[in-house]
Design a protein around this nucleic acid. Structure first.
Lengths: 150, 150
DNA sequence: TTGTGTGCAAAAACTTTGCAAATAA
DNA sequence: TTATTTGCAAAGTTTTTGCACACAA
């Protein structure tokens, strides 16, 4: 299941002088066990851990998701107004993009290899080290097109 | 210069029962006169209008950029931590994407027709009404790769 | 004339930070 | 041992909202 083990996480952290803590391991595990298509906000993650009786403070959650995003382990998604969502940053065959309704936030995931290739090419050309590549389509879903509510 | 006139804006607003106000017209003009590659946060726009002696309240600015984004006139960019940036949502030959350094926010714009085409195709297939399509590449720029600061 | 839009101030929502205690290496 | 990490509480930032007045249609 785990594409990325605690051992690998530890190695990568240590390489930069950071440490593997139970909190970091727990958070990684939560994301690895999430059903496909699920993404969590910091608050979601906080509540989920409380319910699972492995509470982690909100500060630590914010610090950890930021760290993991910068390591390329998580990706930060802008799916709805007001807060960010996170999901595992998966490699090629699982990598995907999002079509998002700006009215109701209904989101559809889709895969597209060329978008990913374009991203890799542009990053390489400019000498940037690629972390994540997202094709985000902002649109209005069929239901909201019909709705009269602004 | 203006790809989109005040008259066109008024027509589009009125169609939905909204009104063309001086504030809305001013904000559209600011974006139309922005040099290529410039994007403004709500606060940037607020300060700029103050300096130009056409002050508009922050609330109105937030309300207006949101409205114009939902109309497809502006696009909302997630270029740096903490706040959104806005720019004109321009059609085909001017449409572009962003390569963003997650450490220092250094941003490079690039054009890519296929990314735009993919976006249009996916939206159509799902029956969504397309507003904006952004290929966002999150990466670390050459300078920040060399830097030792975490 | 009438319902929409604005500005103000206050509140809300989300995220970050300082610090002392805990802990991974 | 010692520098990193955590949790807590407080603060910071960005954005939204309620309301009375102004104003576009």
């Amino acid at each position: 299941m785990a594409a990325y083990t605690a051992t690998a996480l530890k190695a990568e952290l240590n390489e930069k002088g950071w440490r593997l803590t139970p909190q970091r391991e727990t958070i990684l595990t939560v994301f690895q066990n999430l059903p496909k298509g699920t993404h969590l906000s910091a608050e979601d993650l906080y509540e989920r851990l409380q319910q699972e009786d492995s509470p982690i403070s909100l500060s630590t959650i914010y610090r950890t998701v930021k760290l993991m995003t910068q390591m390329g382990i998580l990706r930060e998604l802008e799916l709805a107004e007001g807060h960010k969502h996170y999901e595992l940053n998966q490699p090629h065959p699982h990598h995907h993009h999002h079509l998002i309704c700006i009215k109701c936030s209904r989101t559809i995931e889709f895969k597209n290899d060329s978008a990913l290739k374009i991203g890799a090419k542009v990053a390489q050309k400019e000498g940037y080290h690629l972390l994540d590549c997202q094709l985000s389509i902002h649109a209005i879903c069929p239901q909201c097109q019909r709705s009269l509510i602004p």
